[in-house]
Amino acid sequence: MIDEDFAFGNTAIHRLDPRIKIIVAAAFSIVIAVADKFPVLLTALPFSCILVAIARLNVKAVLRRLLIVNTFIFFLWLLLPVSFPGKPLFSWGKISITREGIIYSLQITMKSNAIVIACMALLSTSPVFSLVHALHHLRLPDKLVHLLFFCFRYIHVIQREYLRLTNAIKVRCFEPKTDIHTYRTYSYLVGTLLLKSSDRSKRVYQAMICRGFDGTYWVLDHFDLRAKDLVALSVMLLYVLGLALLQWGKIL
């Protein structure tokens, strides 16, 4: 689950400078999150889908991720059309489904999917370390950059630690049930995980000090902005600007 499934590939999107991907993903997310006109949302979805197509992401994997987001949306569909004030379309006794409620739910569904698909194509197609590096260039505070680096670096290590612990309780015939024994076992497991992590972080820090760490991070690979990147940036930002104009300009 914590593997970077989409991050490695050799398509135009994968080769794009991560700084550009972050800027476009942020601009697109913000515009779509605030937008509410259907023409805008209808124009936004193809943008996301085209990006996914260019990145040649595995369709099954994309759909699987969309399914998770849409379970939340599904609950909205159960509740919103019934509770939204407006003209009733159908009614059974006290319950009535309103036209406005359906429109509102449809808007949310389209917004949510457009943003998630775009972020899959733009953010998940870069290794996390390059994204963090890019955020550093985009002036994110140093401490936050360090936190992101370390946190992601150690998630896999801690997860292996966790798997070792769960194997240890499994070979002792542990079977999770709804009882105090299960909850106690899980709490001790979490406690052990926290202690091991705390100890490890101290060793890591000491090792860094030994190697002359003075608060500066040296990065070995550098980004270079090529003409292609700038063209891609302008095209995508123009598209987003177009969406914003369609929403707030006096075109429609």
Binding site: L147, L148, F150, Y205
Partner: peptide
């Protein structure tokens, strides 16, 4: 920072 980061990975 390393401690906070590794605890947040935990």
């Amino acid at each position: 920072i390393p401690e906070v980061a590794v605890l947040s990975s935990a």
